[in-house]
Every structure is written in structure tokens, then in C-alpha cells.
């Protein structure tokens, strides 16, 4: 069985996000970029499944310009067998990404597609679901536990009421949550090995996919700044201040 893992290049979770002053987007100048942390968990899970002997090959896929090869190489260094870059400089929305992924799915015929439940930049949480619909295969989202047996995957999901356990037939799309696993550190010699692993570049045009953005972002704005608080002497003053502001 092949496992396909989608990984996205995003602004690192430690970086303080700044909106560009003209509101056209996020400032990424000189900013550290990483694999979306949820996707890293998806890759770790794929590697563990392969190491348990339940899969033969793990393929990492990403969409974007050449800069996303850096994240693909990291994926290869973690242990993926090969990588595919769908080359495009278009502005990407989930449906476009799902369509492009579907082309790769058709070509590679994976038994399982794993990806993060969402990317920490757009927080859309749509690509996995859309891919499952296009592919007409089952989906299991927000997995915090995953086990495979024969042609079924048992997935534990974190839902509002607690944990929900479902079974899906393979092939399927599984999107993963934070508590599924803790990704491994990359071993230094594996970085060298990753340089020699195959990384195929396919242009998105050649896949017959064009970026159709049905959603238009008009502008970005940071959340309003919190006003400075005041120190009150006692409860009476607190009540008075709250009354003044019409809050009680």
C-alpha cells in the first residue's frame, strides 16, 4: 500500500504574524517557514504505519513554487520515500488544492491519504474533505487515533462530546489532529540521504488544473489592539468604573 501525505509550507508557529500595511496579506519577508504542524503529524503517522509493515511507500506532496521543496526535503529527511512538488505560483484555495491532489491520487492509487486537519495559516479545514468528495471515497477527519486492519481504518476522533470511534473502508482520506502522535526529530545523516531521494516536479498546468478562486479576499486586518487596563483601589471603585462604562 502507498500512503500519500499532503504537506503545506506555512509561516512557522513561533513567528509573530504581521499583516502587511496595505492589508493585502501577511508579511512573509524574512519570516521562518515550516511544514504545517498538523501535516507533520500526518507524515509521522504514515511513517509509523510503514514501519509497522502495513505500507510499502510514503509519498509527500506539496503545491507551490520551488521554495516548498525545502519542506518536501524535510519530509524526505523524516523518512518519506519520495516527494512530488505540484509546481504553481498561483494563489491557492482548498478546492484547487483538492483537485490537484486528486490528479496525483488517480495517478498513484494510494491506499490511504493523510493530511493535517487544517493548515495553521488559512485554518480552512477543507482540503481533505473536498478531496474525499472528488475521489468519492470515505473520509475521517480530526483523527487522534488511527489503526489499520485489512481494508479498514479505525479512527478515533476528538469531538465536542468526547471521543468518537469510526471505521472507514480503505482507500480513504484521514485528516489528523494534534494528539495523534509526536513527530520525530530528523537525524542528521538522514538529511544527507534525503538529498538523494527522488523529488518529482509536475506543473499544475500539466495536471490540467487551473486555480479558480471562487472566494475573493477583500483585505486582511489585525485584530483591534486591546486597550490599556486601569488599576482600581477597591471593589467600590471597580463597580463605579464598570457603571461608568455601562457594563453593569
Amino acid at each position: 500500500m502507498k500512503i500519500l501525505v499532503g504537506i503545506k509550507r506555512v509561516v512557522d508557529y513561533n513567528v509573530r504574524i504581521r499583516v502587511r500595511s496595505d492589508g493585502s496579506g501577511i508579511d512573509t519577508d524574512g519570516v521562518k517557514m515550516s511544514i504545517n504542524p498538523f501535516d507533520e503529524i500526518a507524515l509521522e503517522e504514515a511513517l509509523r504505519i510503514r514501519e509497522a509493515g502495513l505500507a510499502e511507500e510514503v509519498i509527500v506532496v506539496s503545491l507551490g513554487g520551488n521554495e516548498c521543496q525545502q519542506q518536501l526535503r524535510t519530509g524526505l529527511a523524516m523518512g518519506a520515500d519520495r516527494a512530488i512538488q505540484i509546481d504553481t505560483d498561483a494563489d491557492l484555495q482548498p478546492l484547487t488544492i483538492a483537485r490537484a491532489f486528486f490528479k496525483i491520487v488517480e495517478k498513484e492509487q494510494p491506499g490511504l491519504v493523510l493530511m493535517g486537519k487544517q493548515a495553521i495559516d488559512g485554518d480552512n479545514s477543507q482540503t481533505g474533505q473536498m478531496l474525499a468528495a472528488l475521489w468519492d471515497r470515505p473520509q475521517a477527519t480530526f483523527a487522534s487515533g488511527l489503526s489499520l486492519s485489512g481494508n479498514t481504518a479505525t479512527v478515533v476522533r476528538e469531538v465536542d462530546a468526547g471521543l468518537e470511534t469510526i471505521e472507514v473502508d480503505l482507500p480513504a482520506v484521514v485528516s489528523v489532529d494534534l494528539r495523534l502522535n509526536e513527530p520525530r526529530f530528523v537525524k542528521l545523516p538522514d538529511i544527507m540521504k534525503a538529498k538523494r531521494k527522488p523529488l518529482d516536479v509536475i506543473s499544475m498546468d500539466d495536471l490540467g488544473v487551473t486555480a479558480e478562486n471562487d472566494l475573493k479576499v477583500s483585505h486582511y486586518a489585525p485584530p483591534p489592539k486591546r486597550e490599556k487596563g486601569i488599576m482600581v483601589e477597591d471593589a467600590a471603585q471597580l463597580v463605579a468604573e464598570l457603571r461608568n462604562r455601562g457594563l453593569v
Partner: peptide
């Protein structure tokens, strides 16, 4: 920890 990885020598 579970993620322990021994550092290599160069």
C-alpha cells in the same frame, strides 16, 4: 522521552 534521538559525532 519518546522522541529521544541520540546526537551523532561529526
Amino acid at each position: 522521552k519518546d522522541t529521544y534521538m541520540q546526537g551523532i559525532e561529526i
